[in-house]
Every structure is written in structure tokens, then in C-alpha cells.
Nucleic acid binder design. Structure first.
Length: 417
RNA sequence: GGGAGAGUGUCCCGAGCGGCAAAGGGGGCGGACUGUAAAUCCGCUGGCUAUGCCUUCGUAGGUUCGAGUCCUACCUCUCCCA
């Protein structure tokens, strides 16, 4: 691991965020001298960000922590045209209202990691719709387009692969890299931004921006990419049966979020602690040294720290405590996720199938039936073997709840009201 | 404008002689083993008021006792020619 003079690069390097830097020495010197401004682009096709976006957010976080100014760029303008790369569904074009709503949702996530404001190291949130929407095609071609060599654009991997595989590449998509390059230059012009960060797949696009900056304004700009994060077994991060692991508490509860991190594979624990928590490196080293069963301690720390960043310390501790009671003491913790249900329905006798579907543990009655056949269903920790089983008032525990379990890890409390 | 192909289970990829709720993967979920891990093995992976009924193979029609499969038109995409 090379030694950097700036806290910023040294921190990122130590924690495993760096894959590639365009001109490491020059950037290092600049960052050591004073605050620099950098940005990362996020698209806003969904109302929340998920775990996959966490890595770039953490880069912005560390940037601010080490005395620099981060910009979160929302792709409000590029989202308007829709992502052309998908087959048909992703071709849907979002309305301006949807985009605005998505932006608002995403903004709340950022405020948990970054301090926004007007100070020298306060974060900014920019929206490329601000300049892309008002672009004039002819002006754009003349001022920006002339700096791009089609010969060179064709040589980029993203393009080359498509051509080789004889897959279509639309003109719109071909232009995407130009728009992204332009974003960089525009941010440089407006905010003095000199660095763009992103995933390693963004390298080519970022370098384009650097080139454009040099040609248009004779500016020296930099690129920094992070490695693509997959789990040790090669799966992409952030996917479960229920879908993506969102950062919004209404989509994925803090408890579920905690559980996601708790179930990290052994081989990923040290890496994830460095990337997704803000614990000091010494502490992480200690945790990473744990072997065998002891590594579970490290996983709990990872889960709690990662959850605290997104949902706050109280929610994280709460989730940890709920998990401890549920898994280590076999108790029914009252802080498990719960679903209210009318008391008279329970009095009348609630079918297991119905109960599990309303609790959100299964999508259909058939799914519950199959789970029962797989010996995976329990009510108040008692195995259910018949799909005819009904839940009645007798099942309400002294705490006033009924515990539904699907498998060993998924629990939901029914609260008769 | 002319010609040749493609679109399959609402997570993805992909087989599919007129008898099809539709092969096989991946992913996911569950079970066993463990440590709430990995690896491995096993099961599940359209819906329902369920010995049956309903809905699914780009869209809409047609042929047929019966269509994912054959015919027609249309939509979308790819390739070749102009």
C-alpha cells in the first residue's frame, strides 16, 4: 500500500476504497495542500438508494471527514431520457414528478452521512438537470462535441464490447459518455470540482471528462475509482429474496438491515468493516483477527456499526438487542418487526396461511403451504405441520403477541388490536 | 424501401416433434450439517375456496377436439442489402 501525503487518499487507501487513480502524485499533492472538491454521480431511477450505493457514499463521507468538499450529483437530467441499455422495461421514461420525488427520497439518505451547507467543506447536492435541460443542441455540438473523437470513443470497452457482440448501441447511449464528461466540466466551472470518483466501471467515462476539461478549459482534473464490491462467493451485494436492501427504513426496517450485515460471509468481514463502518483501523484489525466462532463478534459489530450509520445509533442498538434475545436466548423479543391485526379476526380463528401472508412472510397461500411442507413454519416457536392450522386467542402470549417464524431467521410478531 | 432472424415461467439466462403449468441453469427461499458463516447434500421456486378450477411463452386475430409450437396482421429488437 503506497504512502500518501494527504489524509484523504491515505484514508481511502487504508480502507480499501481505491482501485485506480489517474495521476496519484499530483492529486495527492493537491489534496495535501488544501480542501479540494470532488463529486460522484448517482442516478435517481428509484426512490431510495440501496446497499450498492453505499460504497460511493462512504467515499464522500471520508472526503468530508478529511477536510474536503464532496458533491453528490443527482442524474436528474440523464434520468429523464431513460437508461437505454436494458431490454424493454428499463426503457420506461420517468416523469419529472417521479424524478423529483425520487430526488427528495435520496436526499434524506445523504443527510445522514454528509453535512450540507455553504462552508468550505460543506457538502453540496447538485442536479445535472440544471444544465442539461437547457442545453442547446447546436451550441453543445460546437462547444463540446468537437472535442470528442469518434475514433477514440469507439475504442472504449463499453462501446467496443457492444459492437463486437453485435448488440445495438443507440445514439443516445453513445452520447451518455459525452454528457457525463460534460457534467464534470460543468461542476468544475461552477464549483471548482477537480475530482470525480466512481466504481471501476466508470473509469472510461471519468477519463473522458478529464480530457474534455483539459481541452475546453485547460483544467487539470482527476479520476479515482473504487473496486467493484462483490461477496467472497462472487454475488453482487445488496440482493435478497425481498429485493434490494434499501437504505430507507420504511422499505427495509433497521432490524432487517442489521440482519443483512450480520449474515456477512466470514471472508468479507474485515473488508466490509473497513468499507462500511467508520471504526478506527486498529479496532478493525483486532476484530478481523478473530477466527472460527469468534468471528461472529466481529459480524455483530459490523452489523451494529453499519446500521448506526444509516438508521442512527439507537435503532442499531435496538436491532442488535432484538437479535441477541431472539437468537441467543430464544426469547420472543417484543421489538421484532410486527404487524397489527384486528383482535376479532384472531378471536374468530385465523388460518396460518392467511396469517403468514398478512405478516408479509410469504407472498401467497401456496408459498406458506410449501414452507409448511418444508418444515419451515412455526407459531410461537412450535412447528406447524398442517396448512389447516388456525391461530386463535389461545395463541396470544402474555405479552399480547403471536410470533410467526419462517425458517430460523425470519420472525414477525402479530399484534392483535 | 427489400431480405433474414429474434421476443418463453413478471429476478435473470435459456430448451421446447400440435397434448404444456412448459426441460435445464443461475439467483433466491427452506431443510440437514454448523457459528444466524462458507462449502456440501436435499427440497421448493404460477394463483385459488384444490382429487378440480383459473392465468401464463411480444400484441391481436385465425386454423384445430386441442396452439408456446401452424397461419395472418401488428409492435419491439438484431443482422444483411438499398
Amino acid at each position: 500500500m503506497s504512502a500518501y501525503k494527504s489524509d484523504f487518499l491515505q484514508t481511502l487507501a487504508n480502507r480499501g476504497f481505491i482501485q485506480q487513480i489517474s495521476e496519484p502524485e499530483a492529486l495527492d499533492a493537491l489534496a495535501a495542500k488544501g480542501p479540494i472538491t470532488a463529486y460522484i454521480g448517482f442516478d435517481c431511477t428509484a426512490a431510495s438508494l440501496h446497499v450498492g450505493s453505499l460504497l460511493p457514499i462512504m467515499m464522500l463521507y471520508w472526503m468530508q471527514q478529511t477536510g474536503h468538499r464532496p458533491i453528490a450529483l443527482m442524474g436528474g437530467g440523464t434520468t429523464r431520457v431513460g437508461d437505454p441499455s436494458g431490454k424493454d422495461e428499463s426503457r420506461r421514461i420517468l416523469t419529472d414528478e417521479t424524478i423529483a420525488a425520487n430526488l427528495a427520497g435520496i436526499r434524506t439518505v445523504f443527510t445522514k452521512f454528509l453535512k450540507f451547507g455553504d462552508g468550505p467543506t460543506d457538502a453540496l447536492m447538485a442536479n445535472n438537470a440544471d444544465w442539461l435541460n437547457t442545453l442547446n443542441y447546436i451550441d453543445f455540438l460546437r462547444d463540446v462535441g468537437r472535442h470528442f473523437s469518434v475514433n477514440r470513443m469507439l475504442s472504449f470497452d463499453s462501446v467496443k464490447l457492444r459492437l463486437e457482440r453485435q448488440q445495438e448501441l443507440s445514439f443516445l447511449e453513445f452520447n451518455y459518455m459525452i454528457l457525463q464528461a460534460y457534467d464534470f466540466v460543468e461542476l468544475h466551472k461552477r464549483n471548482g470540482c477537480v475530482l470525480q470518483m466512481g466504481g471501476s466501471d466508470q473509469w472510461g467515462n471519468i477519463v473522458n471528462g478529464i480530457d474534455l476539461g483539459r481541452r475546453m478549459m485547460n483544467a487539470q482534473l482527476f479520476a479515482l475509482t473504487s473496486p467493484l464490491i462483490t461477496t467472497s462467493s462472487g454475488a453482487k451485494m445488496g440482493k435478497t429474496a425481498a429485493g434490494a436492501v434499501w437504505l430507507d427504513a420504511t422499505l427495509v426496517s433497521p432490524y432487517e438491515y442489521w440482519q443483512y450485515w450480520r449474515n456477512t460471509e466470514d471472508g468479507d468481514v474485515a473488508r466490509f468493516l473497513k468499507l462500511f463502518t467508520v471504526l478506527p483501523l486498529g479496532e478493525i484489525e483486532r476484530l478481523a483477527a478473530l477466527k472460527g466462532q469468534d468471528i461472529n463478534e466481529a459480524k455483530k459489530v459490523l452489523a451494529t456499526e453499519a446500521t448506526a450509520l444509516v438508521h442512527g445509533r439507537a435503532a442499531a442498538d435496538n436491532a442488535a438487542e432484538t437479535a441477541r434475545r431472539t437468537f441467543e436466548q430464544g426469547e420472543t423479543s417484543l421489538t421484532l418487526p410486527s404487524v397489527d391485526v384486528p383482535r376479532k379476526d384472531v378471536a374468530a380463528g385465523l388460518g396460518v396461511l392467511n396469517a403468514f401472508v398478512t405478516a408479509g412472510l410469504a407472498a401467497s397461500n401456496g408459498e406458506v403451504r410449501r414452507a409448511i411442507a418444508n418444515n419451515a413454519v412455526a407459531v410461537n416457536d412450535a412447528r406447524i405441520t398442517s396448512d389447516k392450522h388456525t391461530i386463535g386467542e389461545a395463541d396470544i402470549t402474555p405479552d399480547g403477541v403471536i410470533k410467526l417464524s419462517l425458517g430460523k431467521k425470519q420472525h414477525v410478531l402479530l399484534r392483535p388490536r
